[in-house]
Amino acid sequence: MKNKNSSKMSLAMLAPIYIFTIAFVALPIIYMFVLSFLKQAESWGVVYEFTFKNYLDILEPIYLTTFIESFKLAVLTTLLVIIIGYPFGYFMAKLSAKWRGRMMLLLMVPFWTNSLIRLYGWIIIFRANGPLDKILMFLGITQEPLKLLYTYPAVVVGMVYALVPFMILAVYSSVEKMDWSLVEASRDLGASAFEAFRTVTLPLTLPGLLSGIILTFVPSMGLFFIADILGGNKVVLVGNVIQEQLMKAHNWPFAAALAVILMLMTSILIYTYRKITKVNELEGIL
């Protein structure tokens, strides 16, 4: 009797969450999925006719190249984010409690600031004869302005800058949970500092690293506004195509098909993560 009651109670308590999830997560996804198999209407909206055309269109060279370029940029961004973010998160977790709090604050303040505002900051830094050029020329490293704004490297810097906090937090939270006596045990059993890191610390913080990779890789396929603002029209990502198809070409079904493909890639990544780490939650998500 008691069990039945409490299960009814918990159902009642959970109902709002289920309703919210269904209304704002499941239904939009289903809608988008359905949309991706429909036809674009000639003037506005869609025609309710089933077709694979949208998916076949993706295979056209112009869009396929965009996918491949996006993928390359995402891989490069993720690699740089790992190189910067892992050591950062690692050493941050090893600081004293007082300094950890301070570092966290320094990390979070820009994180909470509007990302557009932060991107405009980069425009100022990158533009010809801007602060970066001035400093480099003053130091004699370069002779003339680099004209970094609206180039590929500028987009990469913007991406890495926007996404590195996710990696730092993910790594931080798994390093913070490390039982350091395991590292001592490994040193005691004959491992050098590096061997101990490779055989103990790295495998045990792998969930953090992998979730950081997912949190970096997935958004970097779609962060169209960074490519727009820092790349001019020179760098086109899948996110840019989706935005363009939706807002300018009004081809909703095609935009939906592109989004479905992105979602599929994300799902595969998360599935792999779960297989490798046997953990269901991503580490360090706020």
């Binding site: 006596s181 005691d188 491992a191």
Partner: peptide, 18 residues
């Protein structure tokens, strides 16, 4: 360094690699 000493430890919490 600890890895250069022919001494081994049984830790209080065992410290087995999970």
């Amino acid at each position: 360094e600890p890895n250069k000493r022919n001494v081994n430890t049984v830790f209080q919490n065992y410290a087995l690699f999970p």
